[in-house]
Design a protein around this nucleic acid. Sequence first.
DNA 1: TAGATTGTTAATCGATTAACAATC
DNA 2: TAGATTGTTAATCGATTAACAATC
Lengths: 202, 202
Amino acid sequence: MRLSRYRNAIIRLKALNFVRVFSDNLADAASVTAAQVRKDFSIFGIMGHRRGGYQVDDLLGQLSKILGKDKFQDIILVGVGNIGKALLHYPGFEKSGIRLVAGFDIDPAKYVADANIPILPLEKMHEYILTNDIKIGIIAVPDYASQQVLEMMKSAGIKGVLNFAPITLRESSDFVINNINLVTELENIIYFVKAADSARGK
Amino acid sequence: MRLSRYRNAIIRLKALNFVRVFSDNLADAASVTAAQVRKDFSIFGIMGHRRGGYQVDDLLGQLSKILGKDKFQDIILVGVGNIGKALLHYPGFEKSGIRLVAGFDIDPAKYVADANIPILPLEKMHEYILTNDIKIGIIAVPDYASQQVLEMMKSAGIKGVLNFAPITLRESSDFVINNINLVTELENIIYFVKAADSARGK
DNA sequence: TAGATTGTTAATCGATTAACAATC
DNA sequence: TAGATTGTTAATCGATTAACAATC
């Protein structure tokens, strides 16, 4: 799914006063090929003008619509530890139309009911999700707790999560899971750096 | 690169007292197919025993070696903001043999020279990398600074980075970059949840 | 019109899966 | 030996790229 990437590229190009772009420009800006841009767009029914490329504003509008950027997306966070706290204050979400509206934890020491983004007891999550019609969540709890938290979220009606627990949670057909394992990401880098090193005869 | 995943799976299986495993067990534990496990292993020269599967200890040893887990990997962090601070105290790295040895920032208010993990001025980075022979780094600076930080790291001899800045830094042939864009990850989830919603007739 | 760019089809590439001979 | 599992080859699948007719 490269649409987010195209959207970011378009925003940058718009900032440079581009009024229209060609698949070629977008390819450069998004680090893909021009053919890929045109193919992806055609899959999503985004049509340009032969010879005229794509109108920046029009394109931005269509991409934003597809990505749900036409309204704020409210999400919740479970696990207000190390990573959780950082996400709570990450300014990039708000900037992109994503609103982290509440955090949940089992540790009473973490509770802050009256904060800008309240930290609430995990027991309150189910009700909160229903009341506020939340569909997306972030899991930032220790590995041993993640599966259980996932089940709680599912049962309350959450439909997709971003998971930072170092366990690959499996997606099911009507539920989306995106796993980010910080250690694995680094291990991959370490592996490739090592491999490049040996290849050079180190 | 699924080797990290296999390694994690093996560690879990070992905890369950498995002494040997079949490609089938590993496939289940790592959420891949048995054929994929065997294929991946054969690419890396990991051989099992026909009819006997793979010895857990032997397999763990080989995977650890390939992934550089036989010794601690020292890495540095640039950008001690929101995300940076969380990574600085993330216990998962140390547990996995990854040692975050220093942080760097341009903001003097962030400096803590005598901490367990010192936070140093960015100007000191070049020297630090050379002196300590660091090969891997994490970038957690704002987008506008990321490219410049990357160049600084490259010029000092860093060979791979994990990048949290919301800009897709391009890899070159002898340099590995792994981009994690938190907003994009969430946007993808939002998109798929929306798509599933409409598919069900909203 | 001549030239340039799209949208799409066909060709290519790479990764996954199936299948099975080798063999313990 | 009979049965089970590997290692690998061949078949399948999906995604990327090339190419070009359509057309503005």
